[in-house]
Lab assay of single mutants.
Amino acid sequence: MATGGRRGAAAAPLLVAVAALLLGAAGHLYPGEVCPGMDIRNNLTRLHELENCSVIEGHLQILLMFKTRPEDFRDLSFPKLIMITDYLLLFRVYGLESLKDLFPNLTVIRGSRLFFNYALVIFEMVHLKELGLYNLMNITRGSVRIEKNNELCYLATIDWSRILDSVEDNYIVLNKDDNEECGDICPGTAKGKTNCPATVINGQFVERCWTHSHCQKVCPTICKSHGCTAEGLCCHSECLGNCSQPDDPTKCVACRNFYLDGRCVETCPPPYYHFQDWRCVNFSFCQDLHHKCKNSRRQGCHQYVIHNNKCIPECPSGYTMNSSNLLCTPCLGPCPKVCHLLEGEKTIDSVTSAQELRGCTVINGSLIINIRGGNNLAAELEANLGLIEEISGYLKIRRSYALVSLSFFRKLRLIRGETLEIGNYSFYALDNQNLRQLWDWSKHNLTITQGKLFFHYNPKLCLSEIHKMEEVSGTKGRQERNDIALKTNGDQASCENELLKFSYIRTSFDKI
């Protein structure tokens, strides 16, 4: 039985969820670079991206490699990797027998973001014989899940209580170790020597080791999670996991709180800001991140802002960003909400898709409305799209047979046209069989910064309504002859009103 693990408890099935942008060198404390989270699957090609990484700022997932063999891993080693800020997950990587050479110096898994409450997941690794993470000293947050690894031993010899604050939620089941077939031998045991430290858990006094050649490092209890030197002297209180010299914040392997210019500090002093819960960055760093993602459509890219001495992905609820200094300031009234469309555009074809934009005031991208039916549609669209004030790209209304009016965009005031449909149009209306009105132009103002209007096959939309939009939106004169079809717009509506004058002759039985 794995020490510190839980057996036999019912657990939810383990679901495996399925960018080499360097964020800056980590400095003297770390020998390499800070790398983003990685999802490495199918083959070993991307694994080489770990070569210079000291910190993975995010998670590391290595999974679904069915053609790899043990010899493929023999020359692979990433000794610079010290810390993973989120979680480490391995799933069905064939041929991998140990992690001792792959990650010989991995010391800390912070667990800032977890995989279903777990910071370390080893699942269905069919050839893994031992973990071998002999320098792993601290899992700051989260638990361990090690399950269905039929060859995995050296679990009962690990004292997880020396690595985690609590072992109650560890789930370590259905491994070879369960069948008591392992016969784990710690260093020196074969020669009758006791080389590794022994600890007591559940009444068992057991030597602690990761492999037959690597003991588990056990520091004096007084050192807590700070770690200790090879001689057993406690590291500085700002260290986490390990250090090369005692009581020196510049000799830590990793930091308990924050890293700044080669030393570990309790908090980031001005003019620095907390970033990702582990390091200090200056304003320029946060500003660069903001600008890199301002026009990016890459998933996970955030326009970072500053709030409460932190550089964070977005302002919290009730705050909006001051564009001059990136500071989050309290909103006066309802907060603006910028919604970034991942692929640059979004099609609204149902109430469900409209709900995804609920509360958005600025759309960074283009909207395509293609709704053919739905219950209580006008009210639903207004509830979900009615706060949109600005669209950076274009607005396209296409084959939306259920629409009679666009009044559900009740606050839309600006279409920038930074991206144009077919390279020309910022407003595009095609084949809307029941569209009769755009907006009530006596109450609604709309500016279209650039781009043209396109109207074709809107049989109940009168040309007068379209011409009014040209005047109000500032697009009059931009359109070419064929942009607004004269014969297919309003051709099934009563669009022309003329005053009919009647004269009559009164007659009676005795007068003409």
Rank of each mutant, 00 (worst) to 15 (best):
T329V: 06
C239P: 00
V305M: 13
T157W: 02
T211D: 06
R263Y: 13
L99Q: 00
G58E: 00
D288F: 15
D169P: 12
G241W: 01
C53H: 01
I158M: 07
L76T: 02
C228V: 05
I84E: 00
G241C: 02
H48R: 04
R92S: 12
E207S: 03
E97Q: 14
N257G: 05
I82C: 04
S296R: 08
G318L: 10
D101S: 07
N43L: 07
K193S: 14
L155P: 03
T189F: 14
D86Q: 14
G188F: 09
R69T: 05
N149A: 02
C243L: 00
P270Y: 15
G111A: 04
E71Q: 06
N43M: 08
N295F: 08
D177A: 15
D86H: 15
K80H: 13
P79A: 11
C228S: 03
N309H: 13
G37T: 11
P316N: 09
H28T: 04
S324H: 12
Y154P: 04
T107F: 05
R298M: 07
D247T: 04
R110V: 07
Q216N: 10
R298L: 13
N179A: 10
N202H: 12
N179V: 14
P187C: 13
L114Q: 14
L260S: 12
L88F: 08
E207P: 07
R69C: 10
R41S: 15
V253P: 02
E97L: 06
V200K: 02
C228D: 05
F283W: 09
E147V: 12
H302N: 13
P269N: 10
L60R: 00
D75W: 04
V206A: 08
D169W: 06
P36G: 15
L326W: 02
C153F: 01
H226V: 10
A198I: 06
I163V: 08
R113L: 08
E180K: 06
T45A: 13
E168F: 04
D165Y: 12
F275V: 14
L63I: 02
G203L: 07
V173C: 15
N308E: 04
L164V: 15
I172G: 01
G37L: 04
V253Q: 11
D72N: 14
A119R: 00
Y87L: 01
Y319H: 11
I306N: 01
F115P: 02
C234F: 01
K251M: 15
G203C: 04
G300Y: 11
T140G: 06
N150H: 04
N135Q: 12
L152W: 00
R279N: 06
P220L: 11
L155Y: 06
K191S: 11
F205R: 02
G333D: 08
H291T: 01
C196Y: 02
D277P: 03
L106R: 01
K148T: 15
C264E: 00
N52S: 10
V167A: 12
L90R: 00
S161A: 02
Y30C: 15
L44K: 05
V281M: 04
F116H: 00
G58Q: 00
M83E: 13
L155H: 15
P330S: 05
M321W: 14
I146M: 06
N150A: 05
I84Q: 00
C335Q: 03
Q303K: 03
S324A: 11
H291M: 12
F205Q: 03
A156G: 10
N257D: 03
N202V: 04
N195C: 06
N42F: 15
K129M: 10
F123A: 15
D75M: 15
L81H: 00
N325C: 13
R279G: 04
N175P: 08
A190K: 07
H302S: 11
C182S: 05
V200T: 02
H274N: 08
P246C: 04
S317H: 04
C252L: 00
N242S: 11
E266W: 03
V265Q: 06
H236G: 09
K310Y: 10
K292C: 12
D288I: 04
E314S: 05
L90F: 06
I84C: 01
N195T: 12
C182G: 02
C196R: 11
S213M: 15
Q245S: 11
D86P: 00
I201A: 07
M65A: 12
C196E: 12
N170V: 09
S296V: 15
Q204N: 08
G132S: 06
S296H: 10
T221A: 12
D178I: 07
L289W: 02
D159H: 03
I306L: 10
E168D: 07
E181R: 13
C228M: 02
R69L: 09
C264W: 01
D247R: 13
K310G: 03
R297T: 10
C331V: 08
I109V: 08
R74Y: 10
I163E: 01
C186T: 04
L174H: 11
D159R: 07
T229V: 09
C335S: 05
T45M: 11
I222E: 11
L128C: 02
M38Y: 10
L89N: 01
K80P: 01
W210I: 12
Y94I: 15
L89H: 02
Y30R: 03
S161I: 04
T157P: 10
L60W: 00
K80N: 12
I158H: 06
I122P: 10
K251L: 08
E57S: 09
L233S: 13
L289S: 08
V144Y: 01
L332A: 15
D248F: 02
D169N: 03
K67S: 06
H307R: 05
R110A: 08
T140D: 13
C264Y: 01
C293K: 04
R256S: 10
T189E: 04
C228R: 02
L326Q: 12
D261A: 05
S244P: 04
D165K: 02
T199K: 09
K217R: 14
L89S: 02
T140V: 07
V121N: 01
P336W: 13
F66Y: 10
M137S: 07
L136P: 00
S324L: 11
V144I: 15
N325V: 06
N325S: 03
S213N: 09
L240R: 05
W278M: 03
P70K: 11
E314L: 05
R110S: 12
L332V: 07
Y171R: 00
T85D: 01
N295H: 13
T45I: 05
I163P: 01
L102W: 14
S213G: 14
L260Q: 02
D261T: 13
P336T: 06
N295L: 10
C239F: 00
Q245E: 03
D86K: 02
I84M: 01
E180R: 08
C53G: 00
P269A: 08
H291C: 15
L50A: 09
S323H: 15
K176W: 08
R110Y: 04
I109R: 00
R46Y: 06
H214S: 10
N195A: 12
G58F: 00
V121P: 01
R279W: 11
T320D: 07
H127M: 04
R46I: 11
R263D: 13
H214Y: 03
N308D: 09
R46M: 14
Y259M: 14
E124W: 03
K129T: 04
K191N: 15
V281L: 06
E71S: 04
C35R: 02
D277C: 03
V108A: 14
Q61I: 06
C280A: 00
C328P: 01
V305F: 11
V218Q: 12
F91P: 00
R69P: 06
S225H: 05
L155V: 15
C209F: 02
G232F: 03
C153V: 03
N117K: 07
G111E: 00
H226Q: 03
M83Q: 07
S225L: 07
E314I: 03
Y94V: 14
K67P: 05
V55P: 00
T250V: 07
L63Q: 15
N242H: 07
C182A: 12
D277V: 06
E238Y: 08
L327D: 15
T107W: 02
E130P: 01
T267E: 03
I139E: 00
S324K: 08
W278L: 05
L96K: 01
T199D: 13
H59L: 01
G142R: 01
E130C: 03
R74W: 13
C315L: 02
V206I: 03
T211R: 04
P270G: 06
L120I: 15
P36W: 14
I139Y: 01
H290I: 04
L76H: 02
C209R: 03
V265L: 11
L128K: 00
C255R: 00
P104W: 00
S317D: 07
P269H: 14
C209L: 02
S143M: 12
A230H: 07
C209I: 00
V253Y: 15
L332R: 10
D288V: 08
Y259D: 11
G203F: 11
D277K: 15
P249A: 11
F283S: 06
K310T: 06
G333V: 03
K148G: 03
Q61F: 08
E97I: 13
A119P: 00
K310D: 08
N195Q: 13
H302M: 11
